[in-house]
């Protein structure tokens, strides 16, 4: 059920767009209105989520660290694992965002004969996650070819690096194979490992299937069932210049691709995918471990009336003296 529901959902989306374009001539809806609506939802949704997160106080200094804290001058600090200044926090965050450092430290626990517990390094999730995210980013950047008249030089550099094997024509992009392999692995991982399957929900399978659908339609359009690319660029440029046009005969595959992307964008802020923004707002990662140098004030602190010892003594000084309790002030 947890797999069937997202699978049926993605299939329904595809059927809806195929029916809409083939039989109802809703090209303008699927080619213009929905992409715009999805982009607005994505942007507004992310801003809403971030502002909502920013409204939550962080009561304690809670970075999760895994290295030597700043201590005596003769004890070497592990600056990246246990940063005490903003600069090293930025370094730590950069490693987290670009290379998923915390996932790199992922370990597997196993019960062996004995019985004894063994811990081993488990890099598969880290590796496939990294392969997936990077190829997705490169593919997204490569698509800028469709969204600009004068394509920036950097995009050409990315394209030529991605296709430098020079296989076939149109040139084969390595990231296309990498993303399909990585997403397939991430999907199979959720089905094949009993523990992972147990904790996987429909919300875990849905984005995977959606992205798999997007990647498959993209690969099909480039290498197999061709669409009219000139028409595709006209459509894209129309969207970019707020002057939408629907060229004739692009091919339904493009509309499936575009609709699934629109769904992904619209779904983004309201799902686990919002970790794209959330990673920057994780207090366990973005705080410096400087609690020995800087006092972390809980923003929740209510102005409590405090009765200090000085005030206490002022109240009871005479009585204290009578029973010969020592007092600070005479």
């Amino acid at each position: 059920m947890k797999i069937l529901f997202p699978f049926v959902a993605v299939m329904t989306l595809i059927i809806v767009v195929v029916a809409g374009v083939q039989f109802a001539n809703l090209q303008f809806l699927f080619g213009v209105i929905i992409p715009y609506a999805a982009l607005v939802t994505f942007t507004a949704g992310i801003i809403y989520r971030v502002i909502k997160w920013a409204g939550s106080p962080v009561p304690f200094c809670i970075p999760t660290t895994c290295g030597q804290q700043k201590s005596m001058p003769w004890i070497k600090q592990s600056k990246l694992e246990n940063p005490s200044s903003s600069l090293w926090v930025i370094g730590r965050m950069a490693l987290e965002v670009f290379f998923f450092r915390s996932l790199f430290r992922n370990i597997k626990t196993e019960m062996r004969e004995g019985p004894k517990v063994v811990y081993g390094s488990d890099k598969w999730l880290w590796m496939s996650g990294l392969a997936f995210h990077w190829s997705f980013l490169i593919i997204l950047l490569r698509h800028f070819r469709f969204f600009s008249v004068k394509v920036p030089y950097l995009i050409h550099v990315i394209e030529s690096l991605d296709s430098f094997l020079q296989i076939g024509a149109p040139l084969f992009y390595m990231t296309d194979a990498v993303i399909l392999a990585a997403v397939t692995y991430l999907f199979i991982r959720r089905i094949a490992l009993p523990q992972i399957k147990y904790i996987s929900l429909a919300a875990d399978y849905f984005p995977l299937l959606l992205i798999l659908g997007i990647a498959c339609t993209g690969v099909m359009m480039r290498y197999f069932t061709k669409v009219d690319v000139v028409g595709v660029k006209q459509l894209a440029m129309g969207l970019m210049t707020f002057n939408p046009v629907i060229p004739n005969g692009i091919g339904v595959l493009l509309y499936i691709h575009l609709f699934l992307i629109s769904v992904l964008f619209a779904y983004f802020p309201f799902s686990k995918l919002v970790h794209m923004a959330g990673v920057f707002l994780s207090p366990t990662r973005n705080m410096a471990n400087n609690s020995r140098m800087v006092r972390h004030i809980n923003p929740w602190n209510y102005p409590v009336h405090v009765h200090t010892y000085e005030e206490y003594e002022n109240d009871f000084r005479e009585k204290m003296k009578m029973v010969e309790i020592p007092v600070d002030k005479e």
């Binding site: 942007t43 992310i46 801003i47 971030v50 920013a54 600009s148 004068k150 707020f242």
Partner: peptide
């Protein structure tokens, strides 16, 4: 937060801004 959101919005807006005044000829 506002700095981060500005970066985010600029990235979204970049393709639109980049194409202002673009000469699109089929």
């Amino acid at each position: 937060i506002i700095a981060g959101l500005l970066v985010f919005v600029s990235i979204i807006a970049f393709p639109f801004v980049y194409n202002i005044g673009a000469d699109i000829v089929k």
